[in-house]
């Protein structure tokens, strides 16, 4: 029963596959690949536009300043992807603390961003590199416990 030599062989193959995938030659930063400020502005506009129409999350934005949100999101994505920007907004915890967001809201927002990037023709693997930078923010954005309704007091 050669379980362990096979296990180590399998791990070796998996690690090799991961390395190959991680290392394709790339020009510039993710910021460049997403089309710099102009590209990010279009992506963010598409995302916010979709979020405001999405029955799963649109109510959350009732009291929000949408113009400000668009601008801040663009700057935040710019900084995250290696662009020459400064993000002057609030931290993610402070910005979302009163919204009582649940995991499904976070994922719905991710889907609006995916749809926006699809519409801009961003390749799937490039999309995932941006999503990988945003995903850990769920710890600050999603409330520790889900409330009855987003935006409602717990």
């Amino acid at each position: 029963m050669p379980a362990f030599s096979l296990a180590s062989r399998t791990v070796a193959v998996l690690v090799l596959a991961a390395t190959l995938l991680a290392a394709p030659a790339r020009a510039g930063t993710l910021y460049d690949e997403l089309g710099q400020r102009a590209g990010l502005t279009r992506i963010v506009d598409g995302m916010v536009h979709r979020a405001l129409l999405d029955p799963r999350i649109k109510d959350t934005f009732d009291d929000a300043n949408i113009e400000r949100l668009r601008g801040l999101l663009m700057l935040q994505f710019c900084v995250l992807t290696g662009g020459p920007c400064r993000y002057p907004g609030r931290g993610m915890k402070a910005a979302h603390a009163d919204l009582n967001l649940a995991p499904r809201h976070f994922n719905a927002m991710v889907e609006t961003l995916q749809d926006a990037m699809d519409a801009e023709g961003v390749p799937f693997w490039t999309q995932n590199r941006l999503l990988a930078l945003l995903a850990p923010m769920h710890r600050d954005i999603v409330a520790a416990r889900s409330a009855a309704k987003p935006g409602a007091a717990p």
């Binding site: 998996l14 596959a17 991961a18 995938l21």
Partner: peptide
């Protein structure tokens, strides 16, 4: 999931 690599192990 290694999302930046689009790889799940």
């Amino acid at each position: 999931l290694f999302l930046a690599q689009s790889l799940l192990l």
